[in-house]
């Protein structure tokens, strides 16, 4: 019984983080066909901001992380992806790859190649029904829910949200009606930045350290989640990300030592199978984008 609760909490918090990441990925993909391979580096940026601000008071650090990640996201949009607007999704993927390498090496050049520790927070375990649960996990679940809720509100209740959804469905028609492409895409990147910043905070607090490659594994899992869920659909992406994050977290806790290292192989094998059999994902988008 205690195991179940532990797994449940781990699944929810892991799933929550990855849902945030995959929504960010899916948003960019539906609006401009970009599979942002450099997304992991947003997490890296957040992590390094956490490290650089490790001695600052908590509110300042959180704000600092948000600002840093959103700034980097907007910067990559302006310098790398805006000139490539309208390019094929594949070109965009390669470009994102290049941006990822640039960001990683820029970090390597400035902050250094070695892993850095971050100040732990919310480490305490509290007792629920006699089971020890990490406070951090609970906070993660709450934050993830709040953010997703906020995003839904943004998309459904605000003019910007309507424009984003329209652009995500049919970018050309939206511009024909006067929706400003630059504003919409920049907002999408900014949203991605906020989601990435929060995910970075949660992930890195859990890990305890940050390095240049800290974003690689989350990125790949988020990728898989987006593909499995259906790249063009935000709901599908959230679902895919959640399922995958949850599965990964549970596997981490539950896999026998023998097979544990092969977790990633299973996960990626899953994405291959998914693409081969149901390329549009669990929840297909209104208009498939290849």
């Amino acid at each position: 019984m205690t195991d179940v609760l532990e797994y449940l909490v781990a699944a929810l918090s892991g799933g929550g983080i990855y849902a945030l990441l995959t929504i960010g990925l899916a948003l960019l993909f539906s609006v401009m066909g970009l599979m942002n391979f450099a997304y992991g580096e947003l997490i890296m940026t957040g992590g390094f901001a956490m490290y650089l601000l490790r001695d600052a008071p908590w509110p300042l650090m959180i704000v600092g992380v948000l600002v840093a990640v959103v700034a980097v996201a907007l910067l990559t949009e302006r310098l790398a992806f805006r000139p490539l607007r309208g390019a094929s999704p594949l070109t965009l993927l390669i470009a994102a790859f290049a941006v990822s390498i640039m960001l990683q090496n820029a970090a390597r050049m400035t902050v250094g190649p070695r892993a850095k520790g971050v100040r732990p927070w919310l480490e305490e375990t509290i007792s629920i029904g006699g089971v020890g649960v990490q406070l951090l996990d609970l906070v993660t679940i709450a934050v993830a829910l709040a953010l997703i809720g906020g995003l839904v509100l943004l998309l459904r209740r605000t003019a910007l949200g309507v424009q984003l959804r329209a652009a995500a469905e049919d970018f050309e028609m939206a511009s024909l009606l006067g929706v400003k492409a630059n504003r919409v895409i920049a907002s999408a990147f900014a949203i991605t930045g906020v989601l990435g910043a929060v995910a970075a905070l949660m992930l890195i607090l859990k890990q305890g350290s940050v390095s240049v490659t800290v974003g690689s594994v989350p990125l790949l899992i988020a990728f898989v989640g987006a593909v499995v869920g259906g790249m063009g659909s935000l709901v599908g992406a959230a679902l895919g990300g959640f399922v995958l994050g949850a599965v990964t977290a549970v596997l981490d806790a539950a896999l026998p030592g023998e097979l544990a290292p092969f977790r990633d192989a299973f996960v990626f094998g899953l994405v291959i199978v998914m693409l081969a059999t149901r390329p549009q994902g669990l929840v297909p988008a209104p208009e498939a984008r290849v």
Partner: peptide, 11 residues
């Protein structure tokens, strides 16, 4: 296209 890119990346 992109599907192939991602699938081969997974490979």
């Amino acid at each position: 296209g992109v599907q192939a890119g991602i699938a081969t990346l997974a490979l």
